[in-house]
Design a binder for these strands. Structure first.
Length: 726
RNA sequence: GCGCGAUUAGCUCAGUUGGUAGAGCAACCCGUUUACACCGGGAAGGUCGGGGGUUCGAGUCCCUCAUCGCGCACCA
């Protein structure tokens, strides 16, 4: 064969480094990430069906990890596929201010680098620091997303804390306030003594802890406790009404007894929530510092007393122990009780779960506080008297929201059943300020500050998930119901995210959208798994096994990283990553490169003719084979089975097209008839084109680069080429 | 306590509606004037966690047990 007259690039292995930035720039300049441009330039029909999706906004707490890379890849595949199918396709980017996460990150840096606390700077100055940090993180994240090849419409980029989103938040808050769904109340909440803020039930992380369990003499009873330091105020002793052992004691009966700091009068309370099997079947309650105790106290209208302050120290009610940290006080209290002969027994090996704060790791102390809540059990007039809980349940039960894989529907229902009112106020500085103002006894809630003198705004900010909950529509122009984007793209088609934020985010979006708009936020939820290392461990900085997506991408090429994140990864299942796997797909990119080189050099005598119809019987059979595969693949793409498609197209190109068909072609081009040669050449060219198109959503860079070197007249960029029809 | 997932080749994992078990990496043999050594050809490797059932036929469906992992609730 003569020296081929093809692009000299093909004489060297495929070089992702040289290619990727250039190709991404080409896409950006084309404007095809923006559906409006696609319509303007005539590659998308104005009335085409819509595919819309918001990017789960990454937290501006640093850089993207491999999990984000996996998210970007899966979503980019969905988007590129939809775009190639001719759909009006919008993928909307943004970042999340992540309130408490970002604030605590900056606090840590401030402490480490300057030895200062946020109070040393003051609210305004500290917020400037946070904003600077957030901006830097944002820039890194955007840059990383582009490196991953994400075809996001950057012209529509949003931030959960920018002015537009803040307006949406205030509007939503006001609506909920007016409907009585948002209320302020003294209720038991999760207090993080380290972060000095309240957190929601979902921000708790339970950890097993081995501790001592004390059996104490409480008058005629033996009570068990792991937390003697909360017992100072215990003046109610509770038992089950049907417990025969304690039948002689009547509800409301008073008993004088000797306790930690002297004689007290205790009151008998009978309550059915008591587990007769546990311990002695008798307990004293501390309503201020225990959710269950609080609920008992509410039922029986009992007094509640605070024992522990906001810093985890004992209050004057503890007498001589006042001012001590609870951990230090515990042993000393027990020593005193022992001296008084009130300790019956100590179990040394008691295991219980302690609640810690997700962000600060501190042991959470339940406290009764005045906070803002969303009532999930109040009937809503405008929504057929349904409650938020019911709305959330119905959205999924009705099939309006379809969760993939469907086993997560059960998890979702289970969460809703156990859902309590959502505490939305936070005592942190970074976030959306609560749009409520006070003047003496007066209270005002509004989208804008009230007129007149002397009004002071609530100092608390909102849980970050409040603004995230609005994300599908706050990004599309809402509260303006006539905003073109809102009308065109909502409800969104797809929400793709990791399964660990199904409650935090997915559920809250359904809550907000069904309540505020009366429609679901998205039609399909695709939940992906966690990315793990080759040993199956969760990737984390502390384990030192975190894989930097940019680092491996620089080493093996982004396309290889993308493929390795997709192949063999079904929805909801965790992904295991190893460099070996990535290397395999780097080789694949190069294989594709060399296939192209062979096809182009051996078909120079012909021209690609998309209407070619003079295939011999042999090529007709091959066309039928490949079209059958494409049919299968297209169906699987529509079912989001990317793990199957990627594997199949890989197998076909390498084992079938390269190893068999190309090998066979050498003989045909050497000694076949002109008819044979033409038929084969057309087959090779047209099939390579099909392969490039199918592969494009998975490996966008190498396919677009090869596409640019193909001898096709009047071609568009591959990103907006049509998906092969069979 | 309630629920979910996993268990397939040495390792990491696929296997869509039940129809002769697949890939990557590793290991073995052969091959470089060949589109590609980031390669090709060949061979090897699995009683699909155990047991039971349904079926003409089960990795796949049902029951049960075991081990590992996860979620939720409780935790006086």
């Amino acid at each position: 064969m003569q020296e081929p007259n093809i692009d000299p690039k093909f004489l060297k292995p495929y070089d992702p480094k040289e290619t990727e930035d250039r190709i991404y720039k080409l896409w950006e300049e084309s404007g095809f990430f923006n559906p409006d441009v696609c319509i303007e330039k005539g590659v998308t029909d104005k009335n085409a069906s819509v595919f819309s999706m918001v990017l789960p906004p990454p937290n501006v707490t640093g850089t993207l990890h491999i999990g984000h890379a996996s998210m970007l890849t899966i979503e980019d595949i969905m988007v590129r596929f939809a775009r190639m199918q001719g759909k009006r396709t919008l993928w909307l980017p943004g970042t999340d201010h992540a309130a408490i996460a970002t604030q605590s990150k900056v606090e840590k840096i401030l402490e480490k680098e300057e030895g200062k606390r946020k109070t040393d700077l003051g609210r305004e100055e500290f917020l400037k620091r946070v904003e600077k940090f957030a901006q830097e993180s944002h820039d890194t994240i955007v840059n990383q997303s582009k490196k991953m090849g994400a075809s996001l419409d950057w012209s529509r980029e949003a931030y959960t804390l920018d002015a537009k989103r803040n307006f949406a938040v205030r509007t939503a808050f006001k609506k909920m306030y007016d409907d009585g769904l948002i209320y302020r109340g003294h209720r038991i909440v999760n207090w993080d003594p380290k972060g000095q803020t309240v957190i929601s039930d979902d921000e708790l992380v339970y950890k097993e802890e081995k501790t001592k369990f004390y059996y104490l003499k409480y008058g005629p009873f033996i009570i068990g406790t792991a937390r003697p330091e909360t017992k100072f105020g215990d003046k109610y002793v509770v038992m089950h009404p049907e417990d025969k052992r304690y039948a002689e004691y009547k509800d409301g009966q008073k008993i004088d007894l000797e306790w930690i700091n002297g004689p007290i009068t205790a009151t008998i309370v009978k309550d059915e929530s008591i587990d007769m099997e546990f311990g002695t079947g008798v307990m004293t309650i501390t309503p201020w510092h225990s959710t269950v105790d609080f609920e008992i106290a509410e039922r029986h209208n009992l007094e509640k007393e605070q024992i522990i302050d906001k810093y985890g120290k004992l209050l004057p009610i503890a007498g001589e122990f006042s001012g001590m940290k609870i951990k230090d006080a515990r042993e000393k209290i027990i020593a005193k009780l022992e001296a008084k002969g009130l300790v019956e027994k100590i179990d040394e090996n008691y295991v219980h779960n302690i609640a810690t704060a997700e962000r600060t790791d501190a042991v959470v102390e339940p406290q009764i506080m005045n906070q803002w809540f969303i009532n999930v059990n109040k009937q809503i007039k405008d929504r057929n008297n349904k409650t938020l809980k019911e709305l959330m349940l119905e959205a999924v039960k009705s099939g309006d929201v379809n969760i993939i894989p469907d086993r997560f529907e059960k998890v979702y229902y289970n969460w809703i059943e156990n859902l309590r009112d959502w505490c939305i106020s936070r005592q942190i500085w970074y976030g959306h300020r609560i749009p409520v103002w006070y003047k003496g006894e007066e209270i005002y809630c509004g989208v804008e500050a009230p007129g007149g003198e002397g009004w002071e705004q609530d100092s608390d900010t909102l849980d970050t998930w409040f603004s995230s909950g609005l994300w599908t529509f706050s990004t599309l122009g809402w509260p303006d119901l006539n905003a073109p984007d809102f009308k065109t793209y909502h409800p969104t088609s797809m929400l793709e995210t990791a399964h660990d934020i199904i409650f935090f985010w997915v559920a809250r979006m359904i809550l907000m959208s069904t309540y505020i708009l009366g429609e679901v936020p998205f039609k399909t939820v695709y939940l992906q798994g966690v990315v793990r290392d080759a040993q199956g461990r969760k990737m984390s900085k502390s384990l030192g096994n975190a894989m930097d997506p940019l680092e491996v991408s620089a080493k093996y090429g982004t396309d290889a990283v993308r493929m390795s994140l997709i192949v063999g990864t079904g929805p909801g299942n965790d992904t295991k990553m190893s460099e070996d796997k990535i290397r395999a797909y780097k080789n694949y990119a190069n294989k594709l490169w060399n296939i192209t080189r062979f096809v182009l050099s051996s078909t120079e005598f012909t021209k690609y003719d998309k209407d070619f119809n003079k295939y011999t019987e042999r090529e007709n059979a091959l066309v039928e084979e490949v079209d059958g595969l494409i049919k299968e693949i297209t169906k699987e793409m529509e079912e989001y089975k990317f793990y199957l498609v990627s594997e199949k197209i890989y197998q076909y190109t390498w084992s079938r097209f390269a190893d068999v068909i190309i090998e066979q072609s050498k003989e045909i081009f050497l000694s076949g008839t002109d008819e044979d040669k033409e038929s084969r050449a057309e087959f090779l060219l047209s099939t390579l084109i099909k392969i490039l198109k199918i592969l494009h959503p998975f490996m966008p860079f190498v396919t677009e680069e090869i596409w640019s070197l193909m001898p096709i007249e009047n071609k568009k960029l591959l990103i907006v080429e049509e998906w092969p029809k069979v």
